[in-house]
Computed example of a mutant assay.
Amino acid sequence: MLVTLLTALAVMLVLEGLFPLAFPSHWRKMFERLTRLADGQVRFMGLMSMLTGLILLFVVL
Score class of each variant (00 low, 15 high):
30 M>H: 08
5 L>F: 13
58 F>P: 01
13 L>G: 06
55 I>Q: 01
56 L>I: 14
60 V>R: 11
6 L>S: 08
16 E>L: 14
25 S>R: 15
18 L>V: 15
29 K>M: 09
16 E>Y: 08
48 M>F: 13
31 F>S: 12
9 L>H: 02
28 R>A: 14
37 L>H: 03
9 L>M: 10
17 G>P: 09
56 L>T: 08
21 L>R: 10
27 W>R: 13
39 D>R: 10
30 M>P: 02
20 P>K: 02
19 F>K: 03
23 F>R: 12
53 G>C: 06
8 A>Y: 15
35 T>R: 11
30 M>K: 13
42 V>C: 08
47 L>H: 01
53 G>I: 12
56 L>A: 15
1 M>N: 05
48 M>N: 06
2 L>W: 03
21 L>T: 11
3 V>C: 04
41 Q>K: 11
33 R>T: 03
23 F>M: 10
17 G>V: 13
60 V>S: 02
41 Q>N: 11
20 P>E: 11
51 L>C: 11
45 M>G: 06
1 M>Y: 03
23 F>P: 00
1 M>T: 00
42 V>Y: 03
39 D>P: 04
37 L>D: 00
25 S>H: 09
31 F>M: 10
16 E>D: 13
36 R>D: 05
46 G>Q: 14
4 T>P: 00
44 F>K: 06
52 T>Y: 05
7 T>E: 04
10 A>D: 01
2 L>H: 02
54 L>R: 09
